[in-house]
Write a protein that binds this DNA or RNA. Structure first.
Length: 430
RNA sequence: UCCCCUGUAGCUCAAUCGGCAGAGCGAGUGGCUGUUAACCACUAGGUUGUAGGUUCAAGUCCUACCGGAGGAGCCA
């Protein structure tokens, strides 16, 4: 008999179906066994009544252990007591494999234990919901650019040089030469934008920073659009429209998962265009109102970002930071040489920076001077300078960190749950 | 790299002033025809992270190391 997925079970009321999955939990009451069976699309209660099945089937049901793989046959019936409105009256049960004693119990576990068992933790309903939201976010990101004439141009993972300095990169041996795992595809996207106009890349990036916070991973995913002939304002328009679109998609397609996560959906529904846009100088003024005095030229710490974000009910764009706390390729503000034409987007509710980007320096001589000022080896950037030698145009782009975005939309305390197998300062396995 | 907390049964935790290592969950056995982290009864389960030290006596105090957690800094 053909397999029926639990998500489709309501269409089969009164029919005999076959469900293949795993035993999520079991309760029993003498002659009745209540098997909670999950198949990846949902969980359904399968009721085994001693009077309805053979001695063998009832015995197998009695002996079935948590997370054993099973094939259940039975009749779908509506039941008001069920969370999904239906249950299955079992007629036959086969055990594909009888699971050993399952390490993850129904009650409390510490984070360390759960992270050690991440490969099994993925089966729990909460982790399941988070990764379904992540999947939707990734799809929404791709759809957004694909539907707007962008071309996906994948950036390399192995890179010969750092964007700026080598202290935060993972070094590898590349046939006797030093290579680094990429920390951004941006420089390659700039070259690609001059070929295709509108491009994006989406892939993993790596940072060897010894950061031990709820917002950091050593391996995380980033989507980086880059557009020829865009200035800073175009860039901010794009970032705002993009983030509003992604949030709307999750609200449209993943509400049940947000419910499982007990996310305050009203806060997400407020994420509508336009987003507030403030300059770095205005941000300093807001911080001062809250009694925090950041000297001009300093970057914001986590507390300051949270304070700024809490000032608004939706993501806020902060633009024109001091040039000295930004990368060499950022274009200087023509109205104030001390400032860069850059923008960060801070997520609400203390989730921090989810986007960083800006307009790039498009003048050859200025860029050469900046590379020198930053003490970077010019020969390594010759190919990048070529982009300015042959038909340079104003252009801009940004990078959005997927994990911080997932953490924000799901309302999670820590980014470690937003990626299937997180890589962190003290954690490489499983 | 720094600061702080922490390590006791498979898991989550308790153990008063340094004085008999205990509970819940999970597991096993038995019971129960509507359970929703089911419930009830019984059973098993321990080199208290490791190595030293102080003491009549250390899970408890001290030192070092190892693991875990939170925070800071770092962080296109």
């Amino acid at each position: 008999m053909k397999q029926t997925y639990i998500s489709e079970i309501g269409k089969h009321e009164g029919q005999k179906v076959t469900i293949r999955g795993w035993l999520y939990n079991k309760r029993s009451s003498g002659k009745l066994h209540f098997l909670q069976v999950r198949d990846g699309t949902g969980i359904v209660q399968c009721v085994v009544f001693k009077g309805d099945v053979s001695e063998e089937v009832f015995g197998r049901s009695d002996a079935a252990t948590q997370e054993s793989s099973v094939v259940v046959q039975g009749v779908v019936r509506a039941d008001k007591r069920s969370a999904i409105g239906f249950e299955v009256g079992v007629t036959d049960l086969k055990i594909v494999q009888a699971a050993q004693e399952y390490p993850i119990a129904k009650k409390d576990h510490g984070v360390g234990f759960l992270m050690d068992h991440r490969h099994l933790w993925l089966r729990s309903s909460r982790q399941h919901a988070i990764l379904r939201v992540r999947s939707e976010i990734v799809k929404a990101c791709r759809d957004y650019y694909d539907e707007r004439g962008f071309t996906l141009v994948d950036a390399p993972i192995f890179t010969p040089t750092a964007c700026e300095g080598t202290t935060t990169l993972f070094e590898t041996d590349y046939f006797g030469e030093k290579a680094y795992l990429t920390q951004s595809g941006q420089l390659y996207m700039e070259a690609a934008a001059m070929a295709f106009g509108k491009v994006y890349c989406f892939g993993p990036t790596f940072r060897a920073e010894k950061s031990k916070t709820r917002r950091h991973l050593t391996e995380f995913w980033m989507i980086e659009p880059e557009v020829a002939f865009y200035d800073l304002n175009d860039d901010m328009d794009l970032a705002e429209d993009f983030v509003a679109y992604v949030v709307a998609r999750v609200l449209a397609n993943r509400r049940p998962e947000l419910l499982v996560l007990e996310r305050d959906v009203a806060k997400l529904e407020q994420v509508q265009k336009p987003f507030p846009r403030i300059s770095y100088d205005e941000a300093l003024a807001i911080l001062k109102e809250h009694g925090v005095d950041v000297p001009w030229g300093e970057d914001f710490g986590g507390d300051e970002e949270t304070m700024l974000a809490n000032h608004f009910d939706r993501p806020v764009l902060v633009h024109r930071y001091p040039a000295r706390c930004k990368a060499f390729y950022m274009k200087g503000d023509p109205e104030d040489a001390l400032k860069a034409l850059c923008v960060d987007m801070l997520a609400p509710e203390g989730y921090g920076e989810i986007i960083g980007g800006g307009q790039r320096e498009d003048d050859l001589e200025t860029l050469e001077r900046k590379i020198e000022e930053h003490g970077l080896p010019k020969e390594a950037f010759e190919w990048y300078l070529d982009v300015r030698r042959y038909g340079s145009v104003p252009h801009a782009g940004f990078g959005l960190g997927i994990e911080r975005t997932v953490a924000w939309i799901c309302g999670l305390k820590h980014v470690r749950e937003t990626i299937p197998f997180p890589r962190m300062l003290e954690r490489l396995r499983p």
